[in-house]
Design a binder for these strands. Structure first.
Lengths: 250, 250
DNA sequence: TTTAATTGTGGCAAAATGACACAAATCAGT
DNA sequence: ACTGATTTGTGTCATTTTGCCACAATTAAA
């Protein structure tokens, strides 16, 4: 977890610019939210940001000159430092009262910031939720203007969150369960070189159920998506596993 | 196909109201489009509307007081007359230049209507595309204010369409191929009572491939989603098929 | 009564799945 | 070095699912 200690002056100036210019820069009433998922210590972790005393999903708005897809990539890059992050559309959240009036009010009051009730931030927002699978080790989270901290949270151990953001995370968790059975995408959660036991453990964590190791290994190898590399050298007891990586030449 | 012969005076008044009030009634820059699919004469048909000299998807905008889901249902009801239509989210289309400037200009010029270049209709729109499976026989299409006709088109025989609407239909077609293998939803395309040979033919049409009739029938019955009814009486030669309907008590 | 068409169901080989078994490899302790 | 515990790679086999074809039942029309 990381706490914001940016110089208070520039910090305030950024917020003012954001609130002043947002209206004309961004498509109104529309946001992009990202459920950024990593795999660490045999757990799925979700990257969250803190605003006020609650947590929320990394997200942002769509520039009027920018496609939804480009906005998604930009927001992901800004928050993870990753060049070419994986992501996938999750769902639209479009409830008629989906607005953050109370949350913003509390936040700006505590900051002693002159916040107008009629700011575009208080509008109703339809959000386009995505999920993103990232390599935990390579991810370098960056907090935004308004955020006071970032944190990785176990996907089954989420803190109090804004509005429906918890429900969005849980939906991503369920969607991942489905997608994992259809397409190979879990390698995004691992280093470029990984072992079958690692991949096996990851799939068990995602599906929250035991998978037969033998069949899993055979199935993965038979899929043809992976190429075998030299064995991994560690100081752990037992036979050394082969390493694998995704075949790029397909 | 159906041609608009509404009284020209009310027609114009409706258009004026729509263009005048849309800005304040609807969420800006956001639309809902529906790929409405029916099954007729052993073909998948798609319901389209005509504006100007090209065709487009039935669609609409989201009232500021209305959830995205409610808007979707409302739009579907308005255009099909169906009480409780099936629908499913398809995809977001959010290209940065996704606007209909040329199409509207041509349409209003031919109508000799004083149309302002800066109308909200000319804005960029992110659209939330859905698909809907309907019973062709029960569907009573209704055209909108601006539409001059409706038509059912073979999904492989689409007319010239606005912008990316053709691509949206084709994406729905491909998505349906996937979804059909996962969940039972094709009964939405048939009358409440149908036979296995009918369902078989429908699945073959959707998947565009031959399916073994024997195994298909056994699989469907084994799924437990259907209950068997008395045999169908027709004047066709050959053994009379049983009828089935969806089990409601599940 | 025969014929052709259509539907319901059975059979069987091939492929995929699930559950174990076991050998190979390797570290730690003796 | 030897032994035992641990971990990984691979084999086996019963069960289930799939793909493909056959055939009997049913019925309108010739």
């Amino acid at each position: 977890m990381w706490q914001n200690d940016t110089n208070q002056y520039f910090y305030i100036m950024d917020i003012i610019a954001f609130i002043e210019n947002g209206q004309e820069l961004y498509l109104p009433n529309l946001s992009v939210d990202m459920v950024i998922i990593g795999f660490h210590e045999d757990q799925l972790k979700c990257l969250l940001l803190k605003i006020g005393d609650k947590w929320l999903l990394p997200g942002g708005y769509i520039l009027r000159t920018e496609s939804v897809e480009a906005a998604t990539v930009r927001i992901l890059r800004e928050r993870t430092g990753l060049e070419d992050p994986h992501f996938k559309f999750l769902s639209v959240f479009g409830g008629e009262h989906r607005q953050f009036t109370d949350e913003w009010k509390q936040f700006f009051e505590e900051l002693n910031f002159p916040f107008r009730e009629d700011s575009w931030l208080n509008d109703r927002f339809v959000t386009l939720a995505h999920y993103s699978l990232v390599n935990f080790e390579e991810t370098r989270p960056v907090i935004g203007n308004l955020d006071s901290a970032y944190g990785w949270f176990g996907i089954n151990d989420l803190p109090p969150m804004w509005m429906d953001h918890r429900a969005i995370v849980l939906k991503a968790k369920e969607r991942l369960k489905e997608d994992v059975q259809e397409e190979p995408l879990t390698y995004n959660l691992l280093p470029t070189e990984f072992t079958m036991p690692q991949l096996h453990q990851l799939h068990q964590t995602i599906l929250e159920e035991r998978l037969d190791r033998s069949r899993f290994q055979k199935k993965m190898i038979a899929s043809g998506f992976f190429e075998r590399l030299p064995k991994l050298q560690t100081d752990a007891p037992g036979r050394k596993p082969y390493q694998y990586r995704i075949k790029r030449d397909r």
